[in-house]
């Protein structure tokens, strides 16, 4: 069985590479693959426009998708294990809404459009990220508080959805009292986008994401113990409080940075852990965490490609594409839950 699992990594790696290069070639302006490879290898291309498109626009966008997909999928997995609820995810539990609220407060109240956002010095977008992080963690804290009171998983999800609504209602109020251009900028941001990150901002996004993912990898052992529930885990020597806080922190970092840079992206966090578990046939986090990271990146890159309507200049909003991939997966999982081992 382990040998089979080991095949997963090169396979997923190859799919990831294919989607990455494919994403650079495919777009409103198609660029031949050999040119893309040449540009990437630094040989340049005879068409300066192509070189600019690939290096200035598509490369940061693909890297952003890669990082965002990994982040969201991983935070979804951590939440599903922590709450022992296969339908938990950053967007369902209202954590994305919390990050949303933080961003809304900065963008709508203090102003600053996405265009400016790109030119802001570090302190500028740091404010947005910190606000997103604070919002996400506040909601996570609330959910953890309620999870101690409400043991029923479905009820907890409903509380999460309610908290999400509350955050949205505050956002509506902020919207209502904001100027039109600020509202427009915020709505555009809310549609989700991998293209809002400039090359200069990438190292920051990258290091936050890597820090979060590293933390997730360090949590593999307690995550496995948590499969048995908190009492069993405590009996196995796991510090429950510390583990909860670390998982909270990790999901907070991952969801908040992704949301701040790319907008609230739905379904990747919810659906990818299921895809990973179904492919892998195991809930053992030792394999599940890396496979979820890689699958999340693949799915995000795929969504990024699907945003481009073939044969036209039209670009679909990201949040119009992710449910098309994610919702069927969740429906499939729910319908077939009796036959899926990790549900039983």
């Amino acid at each position: 069985m382990n040998r089979q699992v080991l095949l997963f990594y090169p396979l997923l790696g190859m799919i990831l590479l294919g989607l990455f290069i494919g994403g650079l070639a495919y777009g409103a302006v198609p660029i031949p693959l050999d040119h893309v490879v040449d540009i990437l290898l630094g040989k340049g291309s005879d068409k300066i426009a192509w070189q600019n498109i690939v290096l200035q626009s598509r490369l940061p966008q693909a890297i952003t998708a890669l990082l965002a997909g990994a982040s969201l999928a991983t935070s979804g997995l951590l939440l599903q294990t922590l709450f022992r609820n296969p339908l938990a995810g950053p967007s369902i539990l209202g954590i994305s809404d919390g990050a949303n609220l933080g961003v809304a407060a900065i963008m709508l109240y203090f102003g600053g459009t996405l265009g400016q956002f790109a030119d802001w010095p570090i302190s500028g977008y740091m404010a947005v990220i910190l606000a997103a992080f604070a919002g996400a963690c506040a909601i996570l804290g609330l959910i953890i508080y309620f999870s101690a009171k409400v043991k029923n998983n479905v009820m907890l999800l409903i509380i999460g959805i309610m908290i999400g609504y509350l955050a949205s209602s505050v956002i509506s109020i902020l919207n209502y009292y904001s100027s039109t251009d600020r509202v427009h900028a915020f709505v555009m941001w809310g549609l989700g986008n991998f293209s809002g990150v400039s090359l200069e901002q990438l190292p920051f996004l990258g290091s936050c994401t890597l820090a979060g993912l590293l933390l997730a990898i360090l949590l593999i052992k307690p995550l496995n113990a948590l499969l048995l529930g908190e009492m069993y885990a405590a009996n196995l020597g796991i510090h429950i409080k510390r583990t909860r806080i670390l998982i909270l922190l990790c999901t907070g970092i991952l969801t908040a940075t992704t949301t701040a840079f790319c907008g609230p992206i739905s379904f990747i966090g919810l659906a990818v852990p299921h895809i990973a578990r179904l492919m892998l046939g195991s809930s053992n986090h030792k394999m599940l965490v890396p496979v979820t990271v890689l699958t999340g990146s693949c799915i995000a890159l795929l969504c990024n490609m699907l945003m481009v309507v073939p044969g036209s200049n039209m670009i679909l909003p990201l949040n119009a594409v992710t449910p098309m991939l994610g919702a069927p997966v969740i429906i499939y999982v729910i319908v077939n839950r009796k036959n899926i081992q990790y549900f039983n």
Partner: peptide, 27 residues
């Protein structure tokens, strides 16, 4: 009697969780 979410791991992996107090950081 606590309900577990261990359906997706094997019996061997379940029993190996019992080694947690003895294994290192990554289990």
């Amino acid at each position: 009697t606590e309900k577990t979410n261990a359906g997706g791991i094997t019996v061997y992996e379940l029993a190996s969780l019992g080694r947690h107090p003895y294994t290192g950081f990554f289990g």
